[in-house]
Amino acid sequence: MNVIETSGLGKRYGKSWALQDCTLAVPAGQLAALVGPNGAGKSTLMNMTAGLSVPTSGTVTVLGGHRAGSPAALNGVAFVAQDAPVYKNLSAGDMLHLTRNLNQGFDTPFAQARLAELGIPLKKKAGKLSGGQQSQLALTLALARRPRLLILDEPLAALDPIARQDFLAAVMTAMADDGVSILLSSHQVAELERVADYLIVFSRAHLQVAGEVDDLLGCHRLLTGPTAEADTVASQLTVVQTRRGGAQTHLLVRTTGTDDPVPPGWESHPVSLEELVMAHLRASNGLSGPSLVQPAGPSLVQSAGPSLVHPAEQTEVNR
């Protein structure tokens, strides 16, 4: 089942498009990481998936075909917006009571036990809690609803490293216990590398990359070799990014599998998720970065389906 499906999804505010022509299918039971620079369209996608805003064009459905924002969708989807909104003058206990009243199912003992474990007092007004505690409170409320899809908009941005790890651990545990699907956005890729199953990259209101992390890492390689041969080699491959030095050049290429032959005299290395994302983002920006880096040839990767490329054979891939 696809936990999120979009088709030609777009959202316009006034004259400018915050998101355009987005077609995605995110499989269930996975953690989908949504990355991209600020203003790229991440929050827009999340708001529409949570049912908070209405698409200008296209459709978005959740949990196997329910329209986003419909009663079935609201029932099965929990959303924690940026800055973890809670009612500042309500206590944590009040927030529990409130969330229980507003939902079909609510695991009150779990929520209370979790808050106790985190050291969040039930009687204190939520506005007086620290940022990390407010985030954890919002997450607790969302998890206690036992959703099948949990949407988290930049939940880690305002947290210190320990709070970040605690938050991610809680999310991972929920996945292990319930099989809940997660859509989590961040503008930092590195911290998501250990937890992401599925990657979605946005830049400038467009989808750049979408696919299972295993597949993506399996079909990208970093080739290193002499600059003299760089153009010849590049012409035979799909190059995402070129980093050209005087004598040595790195080519980040897209392949059909790990067993593609390496040009003689060239080395082949696996690519990390962060490198992959950065390369695609730079390619989509047409940016020229610091001196050694030159923009790659255009290789905007528009997703037409769940996986970026379908590897000819499913090889065991680095994770």
Binding site: G64, R146, R148, D178
Partner: peptide, 15 residues
Amino acid sequence: MTVRTMPAQPAQDTA
């Protein structure tokens, strides 16, 4: 860590 006391919600076809 804390344990759930309710089973997860089953998939639903209708609202």
